[in-house]
Amino acid sequence: MKSFIVLCLFGLAAVALAKPNGSTYTDRYDNVNLDEILGNRRLLTPYIKCILEEGKCTADGKELKSHIREALEQNCAKCTDAQRSGTRRVLGHLINNEEESWNRLKAKYDPQSKYTVKYELELKKLKQ
Rank of each mutant, 00 (worst) to 15 (best):
N40L: 00
T26R: 07
P20N: 13
K106L: 02
I95F: 03
P20T: 03
F4A: 14
T45I: 15
E54G: 02
N31Y: 10
S66K: 15
T26W: 08
T58K: 09
K127V: 14
R69I: 13
N96E: 02
N31E: 14
R41F: 05
G11F: 10
L44E: 06
K106N: 03
S113Q: 01
R89N: 05
E100K: 15
K65D: 09
K108E: 00
K108V: 01
G86Q: 00
N31F: 13
K19C: 04
D35Q: 03
I5R: 00
N96S: 05
N97M: 11
L72P: 08
V117Y: 02
K78D: 08
K106M: 07
L121N: 07
K49A: 11
L126W: 14
L38A: 10
G11L: 00
L94H: 02
V15G: 10
E120F: 00
R42K: 10
T80Y: 09
K2I: 09
L72I: 06
K78Y: 10
L94V: 00
Q128Y: 15
L38H: 01
N40G: 01
K62H: 15
A16E: 02
G92A: 07
G55W: 01
A18P: 07
R104V: 11
L52H: 00
V90P: 03
E53R: 07
D35M: 05
A77P: 08
L123Q: 01
R104Y: 01
C57W: 09
N40P: 03
L38W: 06
K2F: 10
G55V: 08
A107R: 06
A16V: 00
E122L: 14
S85I: 12
S3T: 13
D81A: 10
C8M: 09
L94I: 09
L12I: 08
H93K: 08
E120L: 02
Y115K: 00
W102C: 04
I95E: 03
L121H: 11
Q128C: 15
N103E: 12
R84K: 13
F4K: 14
S85T: 12
K114Q: 05
V15F: 11
T26L: 03
A71F: 15
I37L: 02
L43D: 03
G86M: 00
N103D: 04
L126N: 15
A71I: 13
K114N: 06
L121A: 07
R104E: 14
C50P: 05
I51H: 14
N21S: 12
L126H: 11
T24F: 09
G22Q: 03
D81S: 11
A16M: 05
